[in-house]
Design a protein around this nucleic acid. Structure first.
Lengths: 196, 196, 196, 196
DNA sequence: TATGAATGAGGGTTCATTCAT
DNA sequence: CATGAATGAACCCTCATTCAT
């Protein structure tokens, strides 16, 4: 989906508006004001406000390939997580929207899109979790879905906290800390992993 | 804060409406329709729509004492988590609202209330985490805030998934599973692990 | 028209409310609040809000006999004016309502009542003006209606200014001053009055 | 303050509505109906209903320069008064609103604006009164504020009566009569009057 | 004599969207 | 590609009033 310059400006402004005041704050009027144009002008670039939101949500994915070729196991998971950190660090407003599925509960279409995104990532990553469990990087006794929650629950929460605090702490540092902790606690117990 | 029967009915309906369609869906009209009364009637019971939301948010706390007396360490944390599971299981709509701070971003007052709640719990629980670390229940090398994320990130995500899936799986089962996993992975490495 | 104690309280409160914020401010709710009772309670004492206003307007007259027996000419006019000064000084809120026919423009009934009051006074007083002109107290060449305006225009304006200023000056003093000035300027010119 | 054609239409309609039924009658709905458009359309031209009223009040001043250059003493006062007569004769609705400060008592902002207007005129005119007193046109013994009331009390009352009567008499004629009477009664007593 | 709960009508205002220019 | 003017629907809220208690 190729977007015009103006379209990109619009969805950028839309993200910023939502980040600042929730979807309630995303109105065509605010959008137009943010861009310094009039409201009808928006409709030159998007058929409707819904289209703006849908395009915006679709863009959330674009920069994070859920699995880059050549990476496997926890390394691939870690790459994905770091990608997310980089993505939101580069665009702080994202931190307040990216994992806020609730924001889009109003319209079936949006929430479906968000859910689909989450499921897609989950599926892609669970493959890597299995690899990691097979090759002894991660404790094998943890169930797939629980494992996903154990890893991405904290990642989501960290990003959310960073967003809500207005970037009050250094995301990279705390992100490294989190990844290190995850790596450590998920590693199989030494003796049980071998002696057994 | 003592609430009348009608007031309780109203905030119950409000929660249900938000759970069903986001705050966009919480309108005085819908509220009135849900109760089978007219819009102005709402104002006999709450000064404004804002007051309804604020009262509702305040109620999120009421049923979960963040630290029951006599409990310490991980036991206390576990109790709190199980309380949350019970709370949302008893009122599924809560699962879609309880951790959705973004829903209330629109109004400073609400988001402040939500944030304050989160901070209050965090503070109360970090004490128990420290106890747990001191007495060898939890690996001592993990930093306080990271530890909080490692535990409550997954809890939040589980509840959110349960809510968004419309209760498609058994929360109690998956909750037990999660708590067991947490307990295990956070436990310090046995001595032999260190001796290598 | 005999009024109960409660009824008097109500029309007193009504006057005060109008004086404070115009008729827009006279609502059944405010009325009830001012009296420390609930809204429906008002309806025990008056059939409707209109009835309250009508009764209030009717009361404007009560204390000022437009012509006391035994008084004639300018003396009678002066007595009437002084009565008005006394009346509003005793009840400052009156000053902001008494001559504000416009306040009641909304309902034919009210404005009619106000107009009737004004006409009644005008008729009664014009008799005294004629007496005063006949007996040489007032220049005879001024037309009846103009004379009325020359005298009561300033009186109204003084009372209005006093009311709007929140009683910032002494009404009695300025009232005396005005009456003295009126008496003087309306007196026939000495030489023309005699020499001719 | 430059107004668009539509804005002028709106404040014209607003004046007419108030004149017909008090501020109670000035609703956005009535305004829209008067212009044959829908309510939201009003908001393209004024930010709020308040803005309409404020603009309208501001316009009361525009056509009456409280002191035209080159005029002095009573001549200047007379010019101002005749200007007022002309103004309301050209726009009868004005007669019911112009001096009805009470109409706007509801909102501090409006009543402040009206009061400021009155004070401005008063200040400008008192200078001319002093000139008139200095050069022997007006009795010098009358105090400044009383003099203002003696002149503008009748002027206001005349205009109000004309407005309330629906233009039942000829304002110009009665206005001339009033001005003539004022000129005469305010003229100092001839010398012979003092020699007595 | 008063209240608590409710109502129909209407208040001002904002929404996404359209259309002629 | 953009605007000015407008609209129908919906927003939150207040009004005077009623009625069962």
């Amino acid at each position: 989906m190729k977007l015009t310059k103006r379209q990109i400006e619009i969805i950028d402004a839309a993200l910023e508006l939502i980040a600042a005041g929730g979807i309630q704050n995303l109105t065509v009027k605010h959008l137009a004001e943010a861009l310094g144009i009039t409201e009808p002008a928006i409709y030159r670039h998007f058929k409707s406000k819904s289209e703006v939101v849908k395009t915006m949500i679709a863009g959330f994915d674009e920069e994070v390939a859920p699995s880059e070729p050549g990476q496997h196991g926890f390394e691939a998971v870690e790459a994905f997580i770091r990608n997310r950190f980089r993505q939101v660090a580069a665009r702080p407003a994202l931190a307040r929207v990216l994992f806020a599925e609730e924001l889009f509960m109003g319209e079936e279409e949006f929430s479906g899109q968000m859910l689909a995104m989450m499921h897609r990532h989950k599926a892609a990553l669970e493959r890597h979790f299995q690899e990691a469990q097979s090759c002894g990087e991660i404790r094998p006794e943890i169930q797939s879905d629980t494992l996903f929650r154990l890893v991405f629950g904290p990642v989501r929460l960290l990003i959310k906290q960073w967003g809500m605090s207005g970037g009050a702490f250094d995301l990279a540092t705390k992100g490294d800390e989190l990844i290190a902790a995850l790596k450590q606690i998920l590693r199989p117990d030494p003796q049980t992993g071998r002696a057994k």
